[in-house]
Simulated assay, not measured.
Amino acid sequence: MGNIRNAIVGLGRIGSLLEDDKLREKPCTHAGAVDLNSDCLLAAGCDLNKKKRELFKNRWKCTSVYENIGRMLQETSPDILHIATPPETHLEIVKTAVKHNVPLSICEKPLAHNLREAEQIAGIHSSGKMTILTNHERRYSRDYIRTKSIIEKKTFGDLLSINSKLYMEPEAKLKSTLLHDGTHLVDIVNYLLSSKLEKKSVFGSLETKTGTAFIFCRLKSLPVTIEIGTGRDHLLFELDLSFSSGRIRIGNGLYEEYASDKSPYYENINSLRKTNISGFNSTGYFSNMLIDAVKCFKNRARVPVSSAIDGYEAISFILSAI
């Protein structure tokens, strides 16, 4: 147990409860990440819901639980505040944290529910009043870090296109899926190329609760497609990266590399051959995010791997599409 004091506001799924999902890689919550980080101490938790406060208290043996965030910040003086509440609450919580001189916060995605508030949060980060990370967790995941390195080193030659798919809730509007979980997809594409997506056109309606829509984009000179789907009974988050001499498929529970080689099917033609690199037993996505936050706390000049500015850029792109 360390001495960097962490407090969490929002004790629901991503704040705490998902840690009891037996199938998920651990840690998979803010509380779980703090509990496993040797530099950190879980100082307090805050939620309007009494049952969630009690569950948090018992699960993490944390007796300092609050209904009021101002009181929690005043009485516990956290070094790192984890904001795991709905996006429409983020700006007000960030402002409250600044008033209580909290040096660093980790804000769940999406950064805010509209562009104006996202811009204000990013502005607070840029001003130096408080360092703000956006929990775009895939930036910290070993499989995506490897993919970024392969792109930069041109291991499989030039990257020529990215095709991505996101299927989520079967009865949600496509624009809702895009705004909430699509932020991860948009951000990870930005991260892989160290650039910003630009929307060119949309095929289909993002207002519907059935079917599929396609967003056609460019990132630098690279063509990128985003397929958003609903009406499915399953989750799918996947990127397919096509290189001049290879391919990578990456997503939730998926990592595959293919290299160009002499075809076993045709003379004088190459085919893609699956390499022996596939899957990661542990990606470290949540642990690495908190490690980055701790480094930023210790060195206020450090630029976070995933900052509020990155959160703003993802929302800016999505709102341009919807």
Rank of each mutant, 00 (worst) to 15 (best):
V98M: 11
K99T: 13
N58T: 12
A172Q: 14
D292R: 09
P27T: 01
E54N: 12
E267M: 10
K109G: 10
I150D: 01
G231H: 01
K129R: 09
Y265W: 07
D158Y: 05
G279P: 09
D240M: 14
N281Q: 08
R302V: 05
K129F: 02
S176H: 03
K262D: 10
I106M: 08
K50V: 10
K50R: 14
L18K: 01
G32Q: 03
R249Q: 09
E171F: 10
K57A: 12
R116F: 14
H180Q: 12
H82Q: 15
L185M: 12
G251K: 13
T76E: 09
T155Q: 08
G246H: 04
E119V: 14
V202G: 08
R247K: 13
L178V: 06
L192T: 09
E88Q: 05
C296I: 12
Y265Q: 15
I106K: 00
S127Y: 13
R13K: 11
L239Q: 03
F280K: 11
P103F: 01
E256F: 03
S176N: 07
G157V: 04
K154Q: 13
F280E: 08
S287R: 15
N163I: 14
I8D: 00
I80W: 00
L159G: 10
V294G: 11
D187G: 15
S245K: 10
L239A: 09
G284A: 14
R13D: 11
M289V: 09
V224Y: 00
